[in-house]
């Protein structure tokens, strides 16, 4: 098994783990962590799968580079919203629908 394919499989597991985390965890900071793990999994699949023969491919590498920078912007935005929510309500979890 080439290292590209191995890391693509790791990426699939990380993606599933992060997805389960995003759905199950109520604490918003932890949910942001899970979202980031999920993103890392997606990046690993993207690069690993195109390099299954261990030949570097610049196109997905450039896309992932863009993706990492956008992911940190999304994380910062999510943290700003969480901090705002905490300032307004004192909660670190999203309110249930019926309240």
């Amino acid at each position: 098994m080439s290292s590209g394919l191995l890391f693509a499989c790791v990426g699939a597991l990380l993606f599933a783990m992060g997805m389960a985390g995003v759905m199950l965890i109520a604490h918003l900071l932890r949910r942001i962590l899970a979202f980031n793990v999920m993103g890392s999994g997606a990046f690993l699949i993207l690069v690993g799968l195109t390099q299954r023969n261990d030949v570097p491919d610049p196109v997905p590498q450039a896309m992932v580079l863009t993706g990492i920078v956008v992911a940190v912007a999304a994380t910062a935005l999510a943290l700003a919203l969480v901090r705002r929510l905490h300032a307004l309500t004192g909660q670190l979890e999203l309110p249930a629908d019926d309240t």
């Binding site: 920078v69 956008v70 912007a73 935005l77 700003a80 901090r83 300032a87």
Partner: peptide, 24 residues
Amino acid sequence: DTLLEIAVLLLALIVILAVGIDTA
């Protein structure tokens, strides 16, 4: 893609400015 990416980053910063901050 890179052009749109820098636009997205700028947008995220503007939204953070707009959301305001907690005064801990």
